[in-house]
């Protein structure tokens, strides 16, 4: 295993807050302000060469009393090197916003829209940040832990 998370820590000693390797998934937690810089590095550096953004999602840590509350999780993959890395960024509820990565990986477009829709995390600079799975009339962000799982907001018909 190439120990990418350790190499990333060497490269960004103060920006990479935390690294771990749980069950073989190499993970690095990056400071919020350094996301774009780190992403740029991960994409262009020949040793990392992450040309694919496999997945982008968020986790709400309300019930676990996380501070800050949200974690945005990026999964990268490299076709050429066949390795993976997970990057996490922690953001608080009051200022739930991150810079967009659509310029680096177009795949981020819909993924970021989904995270906005489900968690209410804004992505600054996103070309078209609107709801993707829910309808515009829907208020709230359903995957937040404080949204009741069966609180319905029907467009027509009874609420049941």
């Amino acid at each position: 295993m190439p120990d990418l998370h350790k190499k990333l820590k060497e490269k960004f000693p103060d920006k990479a807050i935390e690294i771990h390797n749980h069950r073989g998934d190499e993970t690095a937690v990056i400071e919020r302000g350094a996301l774009v810089e780190a992403a740029q590095f991960l994409k262009t550096d020949p040793e990392f060469d992450f040309n694919v953004l496999m997945d982008l999602t968020a986790v709400d840590g309300l019930e676990l009393k996380w501070t800050p509350r949200f974690e945005v999780v990026y999964h990268f993959y490299s076709f050429a090197k066949n390795h993976r890395l997970r990057i996490k960024v922690r953001i608080c509820e009051k200022d739930a916003a991150l810079p967009t990565l659509t310029g680096l990986w177009p795949a981020a477009d819909w993924f970021e829209r989904e995270v906005w829709d489900m968690f209410g995390i804004r992505f600054e600079g996103h070309p078209n940040l609107k709801r993707i799975l829910m309808y515009e009339e829907f208020s709230g962000h359903p995957l937040r832990k404080d949204y009741p799982y069966n609180k319905r907001q029907p467009l027509i018909g009874p609420k049941n």
Binding site: H22, R23, D25, T27, M54, D55, T57, V59, E63, L64, V73, H75, R84, R86
Partner: peptide, 21 residues
């Protein structure tokens, strides 16, 4: 902990990211 497991689905990489508390 947290894990990401990918399998080859019918349409491509089907990944499950599970976080356990």
């Amino acid at each position: 902990g947290e894990v990401y497991q990918a399998v080859e689905g019918g349409n491509g990489e089907l990944g499950f990211y599970v976080v356990s508390d």
